[in-house]
Design a protein around this nucleic acid. Structure first.
Lengths: 343, 343
DNA sequence: CTGAAAGCGCTTACAG
DNA sequence: CTGAAAGCGCTTACAG
């Protein structure tokens, strides 16, 4: 029992900065300067230190560095979802690719963390502890207090997707409103008169803003904006929503669907009802994910560049960490209509 | 310019343990004891401290705690793959689910980190810094030196999937050998005489061990073990391997495929060649992923419980962190044959 | 360009 | 049960 405790208490092995200094024949200060790439160090001292570091396989204690006021050289990507949903979702895959790309070549670790609101206390504790220099937050639902709380503990944060609460936190988002608007304009240009929408969840800006775009598009064309059904990001909920819309308005001739993955269920119900796409009902999706091009028929959709979203968030956060000024508080990335067979 | 530097240097805001102590009318020591849940603290002191913490919204600096010798209350799950491949792979999704499940209710953060060998230096630096108490490593290829390096810096590690190098590091794996053996025994019991295999990559134990099981099974039955082709974890490579096998042995009547996802390509080539499954060629996969039940025909396969793998790794690591003794150095989890239509 | 010293915010024997 | 003090391993003005 006591033995175990002792073993437990054992500090991490490995040399300290002190030993590096001794071997290199300089002071701890100089070693520190070399490690941190500061300019005023003689070439001789620098070489000696580098050699000593290599010889001793020295790796600085990050907790001490962080405590002494330096950076952690790490940022967190926090996904506010349960773990099981996240992997497998191409949205997060694209986002992660973008973050990685932007981080390439910098000596900055990425910590991917999944958290539901129940776990926020522990998460905030951890992030408040100097383990990371900043955080990227994605997939926030409703008015999740997380961005605000991180802001309060002084941690630089960039949110992916406009947050519904916390107005003061910088975010990067796709221009969902314009995307929805363009989708409807396209449908209207095709001569459609009864344009429904399967909207995304109302607790996320992506759902709300695409819906607003749809509404605005119909307003422009002086058409009724009354056919709305809601779905979450699954084909099943899309099928349910489409069934409901068809029951309410058998004469509808177009649907704007807030996500390609939802459109999968929509297409299925339309097929099952005997309607031809696009002759009887035109369909426009959102995302331009892989699903769009392999759907039957291939889906006309609004493209958002998720990887670019990840890159831009990372760029914005790193800029803030570097103390750059003139950074835009928030950014909206353009979307574009991709025409395929469904509309 | 100077302004920026100053702003940069600003320490995280928020109260210190000192202020909590003052407000609660006790010493820093006592506050620390309360925070760490130590037994010998008077109820009165404890209450006062808790109230002060709540009032001040105090959250301890983890870097300082870690430096002073306490734990980080976090573990890392390190996946040795490029980011883009990881998300979307049901193996990692299942693993992550298991780790999360085992961590539930403990105040332990999970850091998901992706790293290719090129990034190991930075990763080791970070992990050596007291930001985590231990690490779980999965998807190691070849004799990746990472487990050994982490071992050297004194970080407790558990590897998922038997590592090919570093013999001394504890690991948890599915019993791939027995899985492969059972698959072949089943094929032999069906009367098959020319049993080929599409093996997994040779730089991973999963590939090697399943192949060994296949070989052993054929040895038991006194059948030739000469029909081997290799694939990585993609349908395309499976198709290529099957094409090659068919060219070499048009009379083969069974194939053991090292993964369901590879089997997808195998089935496709067999169909295209006009062979009936299982009448002409029986096929057994590995994993029992979702793909297996939705394949055409539904795939007989060797089931491994990936979620359980994640749970067990986590349990083993936490056990070590808690200083438990009598922990098994490594564990092999059982696999089982799931019979469907393909064999 | 360099070193001695103070300090980052905690934890933990030690002594009471 | 509790407090004063030392110490964890770095970084960074400060003085040279």
């Amino acid at each position: 029992m006591n033995d175990m405790t002792e073993i437990d208490r054992q500090r991490r092995s490995g040399p300290r900065i002190e030993e590096v200094a001794r071997l290199a024949g300089v002071s701890k200060s100089t070693v520190s300067r070399v490690i941190n790439g500061e300019p005023y160090v003689s070439a001789r001292a620098r070489d000696a230190v580098h050699e000593a570091i290599a010889r001793l396989r020295y790796s600085p204690n990050q907790a001490a560095r962080s405590l002494a006021g330096s950076k952690a050289n790490a940022i967190a990507l926090i996904i506010s979802e349960a773990g099981s949903r996240v992997l497998g979702d191409p949205f997060f895959a694209g986002m992660l690719r973008g973050v990685h790309a932007e981080l390439a070549g910098r000596h900055t670790q990425l910590l991917l963390m999944l958290s539901r609101p129940e776990g926020h206390d522990d998460l905030v504790d951890y992030l408040g502890g100097g383990h990371v220099d900043g955080a990227l937050l994605v997939s926030l639902h409703g008015d999740d207090p997380l961005p605000q709380r991180l802001h309060e503990i002084g941690l630089p944060v960039v949110v992916g997707g406009r947050p519904l609460g916390a107005a003061s936190v910088p975010f990067v988002d796709s221009d969902n409103f314009t995307g929805g608007l363009e989708a409807v304009r396209h449908l209207v240009s095709l001569g459609r008169k009864r344009v429904a929408t399967v909207a995304g969840p109302r607790d996320m800006a992506a759902g709300l803003d695409r819906l607003s775009g749809w509404r605005r598009g119909l307003g422009e064309a002086k058409l009724a904006a009354d056919l709305v059904a809601e779905a979450d990001f699954t084909p099943e909920s899309g099928a349910r929503a489409m069934t409901e819309l068809l029951a309410r308005a058998p004469d509808l001739d177009a649907v704007f669907v807030a996500a390609d993955i939802i459109a999968l269920g929509v297409l299925q119900v339309l097929h099952a009802s005997g309607r031809r796409i696009p002759q009887d009902v035109a369909v426009v999706g959102f995302d331009d994910s892989l699903l769009a091009s392999t759907a039957t028929p291939p889906l006309t959709t609004v493209r958002q560049d998720v990887e670019q979203l990840g890159r831009t968030m990372t760029w914005r956060l790193l800029g803030e960490l570097a103390g750059e000024d003139g950074l835009p508080p928030s950014l909206l990335l353009p979307t574009s209509l991709v025409r395929r067979a469904s509309a």
